[in-house]
């Protein structure tokens, strides 16, 4: 299940591809970054929507030139304590001026929802077995924050 930044939910129709050894490329897949980098031409030709996922230790620079053609980028949380995805989302919006959809996948926790949205994330793929209710509550927990961030339209900030 996806939790969107406006608080709504939607079904996750895409499959996250981890293993690219033995698989058939088709739409509705979230492809790993290195697979995309090695097979750009084929992917561009076969798919009408380019959707990829990036691990927290991978370099955003490698995506730079193709950003306009990528419609969704998902940041993976290998574990919730790895907070690089927050800065990566911020940089993707602010530095790389990415206009497409940003998603968080992997193992984020409900208490990170609001932080993720504020850093520029549009949707979160809620880990299996977790309560949608808790995620929804936590995503609206704070009505205000002190600092400016990438996505300020959702809350009341000091400046």
């Amino acid at each position: 299940m996806l939790l969107n930044k406006d608080g709504s939910n939607s079904k996750n129709l895409s499959t996250i591809i981890h293993d690219t050894e033995d698989f058939t490329l088709h739409n509705d897949q979230i492809l790993p970054l290195d697979y995309w980098l090695k097979n750009k031409a084929e992917i561009k030709q076969k798919l009408n929507r380019i959707v990829i996922w990036v691990n927290s230790d991978e370099d955003l620079d490698s995506l730079k030139e193709d950003l306009p053609s990528i419609s969704l980028i998902a940041f993976n949380f290998p574990k919730y304590g790895d907070g690089r995805a927050f800065s990566m989302a911020h940089l993707l919006r602010g530095k790389y001026e990415y206009k497409g959809h940003i998603r968080a996948i992997g193992s984020p926790i409900a208490d990170q929802a609001q932080f993720l949205f504020r850093c520029g994330v549009d949707s979160i793929d809620i880990p299996n077995g977790q309560s949608l209710e808790i995620w929804t509550t936590e995503s609206k927990r704070m009505s205000r924050f002190y600092q400016r961030s990438e996505q300020n339209d959702l809350i009341h900030s000091r400046y």
Binding site: G83, F86, S87, Q114, F115, C119, M142, Y146, Q147, S149
Partner: peptide, 14 residues
């Protein structure tokens, strides 16, 4: 203090 309190990007630092 205010800037660092619940800063969305820096709550899960190394």
């Amino acid at each position: 203090r205010q800037w660092s309190t619940l800063h969305p990007e820096f709550a899960f630092l190394p």
